[in-house]
Write a protein that binds this DNA or RNA. Structure first.
Lengths: 186, 186
DNA sequence: GTCTATACCTAGATAGAC
DNA sequence: GTCTATCTAGGTATAGAC
């Protein structure tokens, strides 16, 4: 694997476990086994690195959602797989979805990066909306009100659940918080 | 007002708008109108400041919840007031509940502070649980499953909704995400 | 493409005069 | 209690040799 990809992989790991502000080029250099000056050859600034990270993650994540749609014909199956995706992204409480990790970043990201992040959120909300709309027809989810409202609520819940689980360093917090969502599957 | 309290007020403002890692003693000094060295006289380290902030906020917030309990006899009224509390804490998308702001802090806080934060989360979850338990008896909230699960879900949802609204710098995101919770009031 | 060396800045924190 | 001055550590980023 080339150095550029190795850097991106390690950086993703660091962002998700410590946050974008929580690691330095020095940390990344140590992890990859090169000197920090060399990183600048691949990603000129940390802002450039942020954009590369979000862009790649968005693509990969949306592919996963497409796979779920292809494999699960029912709304209930899709929602449960979605929850599993966020649960697995936590790696037992030590990690966050990259999207969540960037959402809580304090430093101002470059406009390109925030635009990608916004687009990412919008894509996921859109996908969830289709799931809840499907549920109105196939009846595999309990108590669906408006698909759009349900989608935003579900997204906020999984993101909040990740934050709380990481803050408490306890992955079971995530499960506790999404239990009512899981229970809606028929 | 004494300098110590003024510092705490300004610091709370900064934490909630920029995050605990997002402001420095230099920023705080400028805002209050003294030199940064002087801050150390009141709060020896930034860790000490974090503890003072969380401790005070926890007390104030729990008083608010007690007031809600006293004023609203029904579960629906209590939940709606709770949601208003979190909505108002956002100040139009530029701010977070201090509890949420600290939950997303990257740097390791001292043990005293994380313990306070944990206790805070536990207190709020406990309060919400009593609201949903009440709903099982007074029937003013739709579709209540287990009070404990509902409490954790509601807390994760409001916290996630704040994060998403702040990331998008759009307060209406908060409303969109908690709409299904509001709609459960009968 | 990777290295050493370094520039430049900002952070939290301390010493000691007033 | 507040100040000026300073320390130490760490961050991002660049220059130029190899």
């Amino acid at each position: 694997m080339n150095t550029k990809t190795t850097l991106l992989n390690s950086a993703e790991d660091l962002v998700r476990s410590r946050g974008f502000d929580g690691f330095s080029y020095s940390d990344l250099a140590t992890q990859v086994g090169i000197r920090k000056a060399s990183i600048h050859h691949h990603y000129k600034t940390k802002a450039d690195l942020s954009l590369a990270l979000i862009t790649r993650y968005r693509g990969v994540f949306m592919e996963r959602l497409a796979e779920i749609s292809a494999q699960e014909p029912r709304a209930s199956g899709r929602l449960l797989s979605f929850l599993d995706l966020y649960r697995d992204a936590m790696r037992g409480g030590r990690s966050l979805c990259l999207c969540v990790a960037f959402s809580v970043t304090q430093t101002a990201l470059p406009k390109d990066s925030t635009a990608q992040l916004e687009g990412f959120h919008a894509d996921v909300a859109q996908w969830l909306e289709t799931v809840f709309r499907l549920a109105l027809h196939d009846g595999t989810l309990r108590g669906v009100t408006t698909p759009r409202a349900e989608a935003h609520a579900a997204l906020a819940t999984v993101e909040g659940a990740q934050i709380m689980a990481r803050a408490a360093e306890d992955a079971t917090r995530f499960e506790a918080a999404i239990d009512t969502l899981r229970a809606r599957a028929i």
